[in-house]
């Protein structure tokens, strides 16, 4: 397996094609790879295990660097949210829209990849839960911090709250999912 410094490597998605670009070479080394659900793991002889696909019912929802492989299990587990039927809590709660759930998945991939590529940090493993009134919760509940992101039912807006274990530090905020600055959101990392 060849190791490539993260700064010199970029992954680009274009439709169903993944471009792997190595800027360290004199000429950009570009590999194009067509994705198939039957082969979710991208393996290249030059680069070794590089990235994984996450598919839901045949649709590719994202590409995950291998360092974040643990997210696949998180996503798979969260698929059960979509199976909840109307009145699933015996209190009139509605079903969950697939768009809301997809928005949560896309947010989490985007957020985790940004922390990995731009800040060299691997996020802690979160839980994805059924939230109130058709919303989706993403929770990090660790000894040193708690961080909850809520994706609203429309899949357009989100709000969050985080604090440290002693509750001497608290942060809260809201953002729109299609336009937000990730550095203004807490890092889900135990330091």
């Amino acid at each position: 397996m060849k190791t490539i410094d993260r700064i010199s490597r970029n992954l680009f998605e274009r439709n169903d094609t993944l471009l792997l670009v190595d800027f360290e070479k004199s000429k950009s080394h570009i590999i194009e790879m067509k994705w198939h659900e039957s082969s979710p793991l991208f393996t290249d002889n030059s680069y070794g295990k590089t990235a994984l696909n996450y598919f839901y019912k045949g649709e590719r929802l994202g590409v995950i660097p291998f360092q974040l492989e643990f997210l696949l299990a998180v996503f798979k587990e969260s698929e059960s949210i979509l199976n909840l039927e109307n009145d699933w809590d015996d209190n009139g709660s509605p079903t969950y829209d697939i768009q809301t759930w997809k928005a949560a998945i896309h947010f989490l991939i985007d957020y985790a990849v940004t922390l990995l590529h731009d800040f060299n940090r691997i996020i802690d493993k979160p839980k994805i839960y059924n939230g109130p009134r058709g919303s989706i919760d993403i929770l990090w509940d660790y000894a040193s911090y708690t961080f909850l992101v809520n994706i609203e039912k429309n899949g357009l807006n989100a709000s969050f709250y985080a604090d440290n274990a002693t509750n001497t530090q608290r942060i809260r905020g809201e953002f729109t999912l299609d336009n937000f600055k990730k550095t203004l959101i807490p890092f889900a990392v135990q330091l």
Binding site: G131, P132, L148, V149, N150, N157, S159, Y161, D163, R172
Partner: peptide
């Protein structure tokens, strides 16, 4: 919206 702080 959905009160993440209150719920935590």
């Amino acid at each position: 919206a959905n009160n993440p702080e209150i719920r935590i």
